[in-house]
Design a protein around this nucleic acid. Structure first.
Lengths: 200, 200
DNA sequence: TGTACATCAGTGAACGCGCGTTCACTGATGTAC
DNA sequence: TGTACATCAGTGAACGCGCGTTCACTGATGTAC
């Protein structure tokens, strides 16, 4: 590797470095200095690209949302048009499990700057996926009824809660307390199959 | 207030102080030194009672679980025996909204020590509530079927996700993007009413 | 009831650490002519 | 093609800050007799 004084693509390298730290050492270890160390540059270099830590975290979260969206698109494609919600669930949970640190960061609002246009655009594009596509009965995404929106948000709540409890180990801890020797995979499948009955 | 050299109940006072900081300044601001400052004692005092920050956080989270459990018991009582799950939802969401900082801490696994017996006992007692009481058909809490467990965990996932997305402001941000001028209260009610249909 | 003494809880100074940030600098790159 | 110069990206030393932790201490409390 040629060592030049100018890195050339330090901005991108810092984001990659930050993600490595995030998954390896956890959110608390992710500082501007740590990212610089990981990228092999001096600790003062990051401030040329990101004014602050929250700037870096927001860009990293944005890249996470772009990838989550792709996960959802792919999973929905595999599931087929009449199983949109089932595809969404799979993609969402699979993403959280494959990048738990990044997923946590994406929803840790204290540390993100949602006024950052890169983040809000990436987040917005991803969240649009949560509403199923127009079913051809005259409704469409532009003005969903309260009932359609409620359905979509209830579904999001469930898969988001499931993803969160899973990657934090709470789901398996609690489920094992209640029923020993249970496979987490089976439980996840059963949860997504079961759903939540409407309240009467 | 009599100022004596010995505080008398510093342990409890530190936990109260920690919760004040948590809700006022956020988790990042909650340090051993900050808790000592808030309680009005010297910064070296906390280590006599809590070996480390995670010891203090774990005790605080334990007290949160005790109170969450009481919220659930009360809400289930109000809802009545045949609306157990609806009561659970209300109590869970109400607790998270009334103590968002504490709720976040209780599920921030990196910072808690679940091997702490006080925490694991309090958590365990609370999580037991997630399974509805025996319905008299021969099943009981001691050995729920996969289907019953799946139902309970799916319901937990939904209310936990809802609570999380609510207190972080994500739910209203996304819902408002999709349907302007919507009342969050109406949306929450609709989500809890709607539920999630089983995947076919 | 009184005295001696051990134990306990909180103090305050000191330590080393990693952090973000500033600043004068230096080396590389790009542009004008 | 060559030279001069401006701009840009990264360096490394220095700063002040708040943190957890240690340690000898001091003042209050409890116990033995």
């Amino acid at each position: 590797m040629t060592q030049t004084y100018h890195h050339g693509a330090l901005r991108e390298a810092l984001i990659v470095a930050a993600e490595t730290i995030l998954e390896r050492d956890g959110i608390a270890a992710l500082t501007l200095r740590a990212a610089a160390r990981e990228a092999g540059v001096s600790h003062a270099a990051p401030s040329h690209h990101f004014g602050s830590l929250s700037g870096l975290l927001s860009e990293l979260a944005a890249s996470g949302f772009v990838r989550l969206r792709q996960h959802l698109v792919d999973a929905v494609g595999v599931a087929g048009p009449d199983r949109y919600m089932a595809g969404l669930s799979r993609g969402y949970v699979a993403f959280a499990r494959s990048s738990p640190g990044l997923f946590r960061l994406m929803f840790r609002s204290e540390q993100l700057d949602w006024s950052n246009p890169v983040l809000s655009a990436a987040g917005g594009a991803t969240f649009t996926m949560l509403l199923p596509p127009s079913s051809g009965d005259g409704t469409d995404k532009a003005s969903p009824t309260l009932s359609l929106l409620g359905n979509a948000m209830a579904h999001w709540s469930m898969v988001h809660g499931l993803a969160t409890l899973l990657i934090d180990g709470r789901l398996s801890a609690v489920a094992n307390e209640m029923s020993r020797g249970l496979s987490v995979e089976d439980l996840v499948k059963e949860i997504l199959r079961s759903g939540v009955p409407p309240a009467h």
